[in-house]
Design a protein around this nucleic acid. Structure first.
Lengths: 352, 352
DNA sequence: ATTTAGCAGTCGTAAGTATGGAGTGCTAAT
DNA sequence: ATTAGCACTCCATACTTACGACTGCTAAAT
């Protein structure tokens, strides 16, 4: 059961206004700026009704109205205008992506950075879990007598490498052969499978056993370990420009939540985030997960040539410019789509 | 020309007190807590003299005294007590370093993290410039048909790797040979030299030329690029617990300075930081470099087996517990000294 | 000559009070 | 159903007062 068109107009006015000013808005101001054909008294009646419906709140009796989290929810689902980015903003985004990038990490870092720059919120990116990635090959490179570099290449070009110490000073040929052997044995299996299954050990020749154990350890480190360390944040300090964090108390709670990145995982990966392109979650205290302060998270899922390369978005106060954020995420999606071919996104206009 | 012993005692009392309370201290309180044998009037006279000498300030006429930056300088150079870390703190440090770490990056990350945890300030680490590192070998590993991994191994075990796209789908043997060839040609030369000199190109066989150019690009990226990206920060939000940043204005200035990591470079690498083990710089506005707010930076230079592995320390308000910070940096130094051998630092006592 | 007690003077902080105005809810008229 | 009008609420601001924390100075004591 919906609400009347007029109520929607008024609610939208409240949210639109509050998003930029962070101040309660009065019936008179709504009339003046958004709905001059109605009297303030009528608007007041509607406001009162919207308050009863749980969409608005008053900080105190003689103050204007402020949207609730429910109002934002309705706003993003139904009322939100489609905002266009300015030329400068488009240019900024393009500039961030105008050189070749081969590593997913780098793309996501850049994405988080540009999101933060444009929205003045904290940019966040989630580097995808490699547990389900299929192993293509294992390369083992000798660095020094006791140190090797283990490189795991997976489908989608994801790449994980780690140095490991190794005993017995094996020669390069041996390591190469071992790498080829392991590649052959494991090719097509996901890292998760490899980390989990003990049975595959049997297939391994005796002479590779020590090396094998080391590599399994490396794979486990990447596969089993959850997302910790795979969350990228850019522009944490930007949040302090937002008036809701003028109070140091709240600012600290928020920044601490950001520093404990693991806490963010449920908020970034929760239900619903999987299949749709843009995911907006608006949460009061503890709705976002244990210890997370009241905030909103908007993320997009990015793909290149159909291959998932990760999620990126913003984290900020519930009062944020959702429309702009969505536009930014959208345009970035188009931009990185075209990245590998060096093409420009279709709606690009070049201006000096 | 020094100051009298009694003045030193009083100054130390002021600083010691201010470090923990962040409140101006009165003559009466000094008498009570530090120097019961003197009258407050005498202390008042001395305070007045110290103020004339530039070591103390009054926020206003009827307030107690507060140390100036000069006072901190004198304090760390001469007056500071040697504080012992608590058992818990020692344990915390040891826990951070109780597993094997082969990568310098990882050690410095951990260092910054533990420093932040114990001091409640922002931990900072500077990963050393590789411009002067001598190249030991170049490894080129084929990942996919068009992608190779270029690994640069330098003396001291420093390692830089980057993926690069490459045309012509060369086979593995070719890449290995090319790697060996380049290793031989460049071994012993510093990355800086290699990046700078064009003359070495002549020695390169025609067939390696394209690959060579790619690798030079990679080396230049690491060698010429300055420190950007080599600065590690941990615990930025911790600063908000410090009373000097209760004011959001100042907090933002500080956090923004931290985000623009490049700005930190002069502060971390300035004159004097080179040869001594622990470097304390206490700066008023702009003394630390353009755009840096008033703050203090304490760093230590860490070595393993005589090889420099980087600097790490804290950044925080001028009012910080220098003694504790120095103790922490010191103990970390001992701990990572012993890291590769798995030994414990000498003064370690194990308690459950 | 140094130290100290005593006291006047300064100034910030906290608490209390008054005022203005912003905004609402309600009522009654349209 | 809408709206003008008005009484009412309550916050923000400014102003005042009182208190008390410290100092600096002077004069006496050591």
């Amino acid at each position: 059961m919906g609400i009347s068109a007029r109520k929607e107009k008024i609610l939208r006015a409240v949210v639109d206004s509050y998003i930029v000013s962070c101040e309660p808005i009065s019936s008179a101001e709504i009339r003046e700026r958004f709905l001059p054909d109605l009297s303030s008294a009528t608007i007041r009646n509607e406001l009162s009704a919207l308050e009863d419906m749980g969409y608005l709140e008053q900080p105190h009796t003689s103050a204007g109205r402020v949207p609730t989290a429910d109002a934002y929810r309705l706003y993003v689902d139904k009322l939100m205008p489609k905002k266009k980015l300015t030329r400068n903003e488009l240019k900024t985004i393009r500039r961030y992506f105008d050189h070749k990038m081969t590593e997913i990490d780098e793309i996501l870092h850049q994405t988080a950075r540009v999101i933060s720059e444009i929205t003045n919120l904290t940019g966040v990116a989630l580097i995808p879990d490699v547990t389900d990635a299929k192993l293509e090959s294992v390369k083992i490179v000798k660095l020094t007598d006791s140190l090797v570099l283990i490189v795991l290449v997976t489908d989608g070009g994801i790449l994980k490498d780690t140095t490991a110490e190794i005993a017995g000073n094996p020669d390069e040929g041996y390591l190469r052969t071992a790498g080829n052997f392991l590649s052959a044995a494991y090719q097509g299996h996901s890292l998760g499978e490899i980390a989990a299954s003990e049975s595959l050990i049997r297939a391994i020749k005796k002479e590779y056993e020590q090396l094998f154990k080391t590599i399994i350890k490396v794979i486990k480190k990447h596969a089993g370990g959850g997302y910790a360390g795979n969350i990228v944040l850019e522009g944490g300090a930007k949040l302090l420009t937002q008036p809701e964090y003028a109070n140091t108390q709240k600012a600290r709670a928020m920044l601490e939540a950001l520093e404990a990145k693991e806490q963010l995982i449920p908020a970034l990966t929760g239900a619903g985030a999987r299949d749709i392109d843009i995911n907006i979650r608006i949460g009061r205290d503890n709705e976002m997960g244990e210890g997370m302060p009241e905030c909103a998270i908007v993320t997009a899922n990015y793909r290149i040539n159909g291959i998932n390369i990760g999620n990126a978005g913003v984290i900020g106060p519930i009062r944020m410019d959702y429309s702009k954020v969505v536009s930014v995420l959208d345009y970035i999606g188009k931009t990185i789509q075209e990245l590998p071919d060096g093409e420009r996104p279709p709606d690009t206009d070049r201006d000096e």
